[in-house]
């Protein structure tokens, strides 16, 4: 409970301040071929990092939204990384087979990323500005989050 509150404050803090909250630079690998991925490597772009699992219902709902958002904002310098946290790959394979996702799907072989980001719920998403700072955190996914997330992305994209 205390952690929950703390994370809430953290989110408010992120949201309210443009000061430096550098996104943890955890090491990921591309889901399809295991090629190394580095979140820091996306500096200069607005990056949306999403943590998901195949067994999580709201994650399923968020995928079409992420695909649409990615398609729309990619030309303006937007990246989207969906980090899979399934313990068994078969579940994620089956999940992805039914999704049309052009954005980057990552896996977390070291299993350290969600802890570094202090993921509090599934899914959790982090919006990182062009300078590599976490600016917004979203816990869970609901229909009503869509407009807010898009507005936040647009605002971050308009920043230098």
């Amino acid at each position: 409970m205390i952690r929950h509150l703390a994370s809430g404050f953290l989110a408010v803090f992120f949201a309210a301040s443009a000061s430096a909250n550098p996104a943890p630079d955890c090491r990921l690998s591309r889901y399809q071929d295991g090629a190394p991925l580095n979140i820091a490597g996306f500096k200069g772009k607005v990056t949306y990092v999403d943590f998901w699992a195949s067994w999580c219902g709201p994650c399923l709902q968020s995928f079409p939204f992420m695909a649409e958002t990615y398609k729309e904002f990619k030309p303006k310098g937007f990246e989207l990384i969906a980090v899979n946290l399934d313990e068994e790959r078969e579940g994620a394979d089956a999940f992805l087979a039914k999704q049309h996702a052009d954005f980057t799907i990552a896996s977390d072989p070291a299993g350290d990323c969600p802890r570094q980001y202090d993921v509090q719920a599934m899914p959790s998403s982090f919006l990182i500005d062009r300078k590599g700072n976490i600016r917004h955190v979203h816990l869970g996914f609901r229909e009503k989050d869509k407009a807010e997330i898009r507005a936040q992305i647009e605002a971050l994209l308009s920043e230098p």
Partner: peptide, 11 residues
């Protein structure tokens, strides 16, 4: 149990 470790419990 971390939120991302509930795959088995969700079955």
């Amino acid at each position: 149990v971390a939120p991302w470790e509930r795959g088995a419990l969700a079955k």
